[in-house]
């Protein structure tokens, strides 16, 4: 199954980024073969509508599930419409997150987990 993770870097050892719309990288991973493709997130530096443009980008890649920390209301709306499952509160390394997903230990979210503009501003 093709899934996508919000990540702080381009490989399996990177951390899952808690922000969906504003994360720097999206990692597209085939959960069976572990084939991985990293792309920039078009929402990272968007002046507004980051969640929307990020959600559209992952929907264009035909993913079945998103693994991330939090999802805001606009991204949630777009991903729901696209029929993509959302797993939130995911933390740790990308490799571990994919393992947790495969073993069915992640929580599927049914609504936005944060208000808009959650991911804006510097992270410390």
């Amino acid at each position: 199954m093709k899934i996508v993770l919000s990540a702080t870097g381009p490989g399996f050892e990177a951390a899952v980024d808690e922000r969906f719309g504003r994360c720097p990288y999206f990692l597209y991973i085939d959960s069976e073969t572990l084939e991985i493709e990293a792309t920039d997130n078009p929402g990272e530096k968007a002046s507004g509508g980051a969640g929307i443009v990020a959600a559209q980008a992952v929907a264009d890649k035909d993913v079945k599930a998103v693994l991330t920390g939090h999802i805001g209301p606009n991204a949630h709306e777009v991903l729901s419409k696209a029929g993509i499952k959302m797993f939130t509160d995911v933390t740790g390394k990308v490799r571990e997150a994919v393992e947790s997903f495969k073993s069915g230990n992640l929580k599927e979210s049914t609504g936005p987990t944060v208000a808009g503009h959650f991911g804006k501003g510097p992270r410390v």
Binding site: G48, G49, A50, I52, Q56, A59, K81, A82
Partner: peptide, 10 residues
């Protein structure tokens, strides 16, 4: 749309 006010899905 530079303001990301539209999303187009399949």
């Amino acid at each position: 749309c530079v303001y990301n006010a539209l999303a187009v899905l399949k």
